[in-house]
Simulated scan of single mutants.
Amino acid sequence: MTAQRQQRNWSGPKPPFRRAIAVITLAALLLPPPGALAATTQRIIANRYSGLAIDGFDPVSYFVDGQALIGDADFEAAQAGVVWRFRNEGNRASFLAHPEVYGPQFGGYDPTDVARGITVPGNPRLFAVVDERLFLFSREESRDAFKADPARYLPRAEARWPALEQELPE
């Protein structure tokens, strides 16, 4: 074989391999780290028609902005079987790095009701951030009672949540 032919045959991977390498590299860059996918194990409330978690509100905005803000369809991420929306790429990246911090506790169900042994979906507009965790509530009275004395509700809610979560429909 001539040197020129050897050069042509050994100049690197063939085009199909180059495409495969490009796809694998792109996937590695776009997918969140493996730990991020497993970090949120709670079943999250999602709109059954759109698949959006917490009605499309940005879960990071509760912490950063101190208010419930709607996310943008340009900044979405699939995590824990639902689609999350964010206001910007920074919020999206923060959530994907730490979904266990930014995601609503008890899957978005009202913690005062979970403490009573029932699951009532929380309203993303009725929220509290307590001990750096997001809680959503079904009623203002529940939110106010919880904020006044979280220690009264959290131990019971945490004890009852595993059994309640198993009973949720898929």
Rank of each mutant, 00 (worst) to 15 (best):
G66Q: 10
D113G: 13
I70Y: 10
L30T: 13
F75G: 07
P99N: 03
G107L: 14
A93M: 06
N88E: 09
W84C: 04
I44D: 00
T112Y: 12
G51Y: 04
G117S: 12
D74P: 12
G103S: 14
V64G: 02
P32H: 06
V60R: 11
D113W: 09
A39Y: 00
G66C: 07
E89I: 04
A20C: 04
A22C: 03
F75C: 10
E89R: 07
S50V: 02
A73L: 15
A128H: 01
N88W: 04
L31P: 04
D72L: 11
I70A: 15
A77D: 13
T40P: 06
I24T: 09
P124R: 09
P124I: 07
F127D: 02
A22G: 04
I45W: 02
G35F: 00
V23F: 01
F63M: 08
F17H: 08
H98W: 04
A20S: 03
D55K: 03
F75L: 10
F63G: 05
F106T: 06
F127E: 03
A73C: 11
A73K: 15
I45R: 08
I118Y: 03
A20W: 05
A73Y: 13
I54E: 01
D74T: 15
R92V: 05
D58S: 01
G71H: 12
P104Q: 09
A115P: 10
N123V: 00
V130D: 06
Q42I: 05
Q105T: 14
N47P: 00
L26P: 03
S61P: 06
A68W: 13
A27P: 00
V60K: 12
A22E: 05
L37M: 12
G71N: 11
L126R: 13
E76Q: 15
Y62A: 04
A68C: 12
F75A: 07
F95S: 01
V114R: 13
Y102I: 00
T25E: 05
D113T: 14
L30W: 08
I44Q: 08
D110W: 10
G122D: 04
